[in-house]
Amino acid sequence: MSMSSIASADVRRRDLAAFLRSRRERISPEQVGLPVTGRRRTPGLRREEVAQLAAVGVTWYTWLEQSRDIQVSTQVLDAVARALLLDPSERAHLFVLAGAEDPSPVLECPTVTPGVRVMLDQMSPMPAAAINSRYDILAHNRAYTHLVGDLDALAPENRNLMWLAFTPSRFRDTLVDVEVAREGMVARFRAAMADRGAEPAWKSLLTRLRQASPDFEAAWERHEVSRIANGVKHFLVPEAGLLHFDYTSFWLGPGAGGRVVVYTPRDEETRERLAFLDRFAGRPADRP
């Protein structure tokens, strides 16, 4: 191990010790159902009380708060997190500092708030959608259907941009340079899946894509990775012609999970054609 790695591990152990002490000192015995006995020199729980609640050895827990270089199992960290009443963010921070993988991570929420839905609607006639890191389309406005088709007509598991890009769909037909776009999506999907590979939804989507599309299988086997980036896309929409967009991602939370993607026209012609599509979509079906 290099000197920089050793120094980094030392810093992380010190941060872990300080974090545990701060969480311990904020909890009163009454909060965890312990009797108050004798006068306390410091606020919060004693180390032996945390060890008791977590069912771990007092010496071991003391070493943890003393930044000792000891092995920490995920089961013990889970018990300590419960004993210290850690919220989801604090729990995730504990496992990061301990250099361990959380056996019960807080999964990305698939829901979209009413406020986000209102925002998407207000963005019309610019196409916009809320998408998670797995490329599931969680919500969208009417203008977005001009590019990808009627999502409400699809089964929920098929409302996924990669699925639409690699199987027959309006999205695959209208997206210019679809091969380039697919390569980028696979690379970003692989990067995002690095720490989610055990999650059933991710494994299921990967299996379905590999079975449904030889093109996806070939791209997956290249092991390319990349990160989300803004850029340019072009769509050839039968009802309006060629549309040129800048697409921009706005994150819905502090982590790189859910985001709103907005397609803004790159030229006046695209802007006019979008306005036409918006009027066209609003006509009753029996009118010319």
Rank of each mutant, 00 (worst) to 15 (best):
W60P: 02
W60D: 06
W63D: 01
L64F: 06
E65I: 11
E65V: 12
Q66H: 14
Q66P: 12
S67R: 10
R68G: 00
R68E: 03
D69L: 06
D69V: 04
D69T: 05
V72K: 01
V72C: 07
T74R: 04
D78Q: 15
A79Q: 13
A79F: 05
A83Q: 02
P88D: 10
S89V: 13
S89D: 15
H93W: 10
L94Q: 05
F95N: 04
V96W: 06
L97K: 02
A98C: 11
A98N: 07
A100D: 01
E101Y: 05
D102S: 11
D102M: 08
S104V: 13
V106I: 13
L107V: 14
P110Q: 09
T111H: 13
V112G: 00
V112I: 14
T113H: 10
T113Y: 05
L120P: 04
Q122D: 13
M123A: 03
P125L: 03
P125W: 00
S133M: 04
L138F: 11
A139G: 07
A139K: 06
N141L: 08
Y144T: 00
Y144S: 08
T145D: 09
V148S: 15
V148M: 14
G149K: 11
L151K: 12
D152L: 11
L154F: 10
A155T: 08
E157Q: 14
W163K: 01
T167Q: 00
P168A: 02
R170P: 00
F171C: 05
D173W: 02
T174L: 10
T174F: 15
T174E: 09
T174M: 07
L175K: 00
V178K: 11
V180Q: 14
G184C: 06
G184V: 04
G184Q: 14
G184R: 12
M185L: 11
V186P: 02
A187F: 08
A187Y: 07
F189N: 04
F189R: 08
R190I: 08
R190C: 05
A192C: 11
M193V: 00
M193N: 04
A194K: 12
R196I: 08
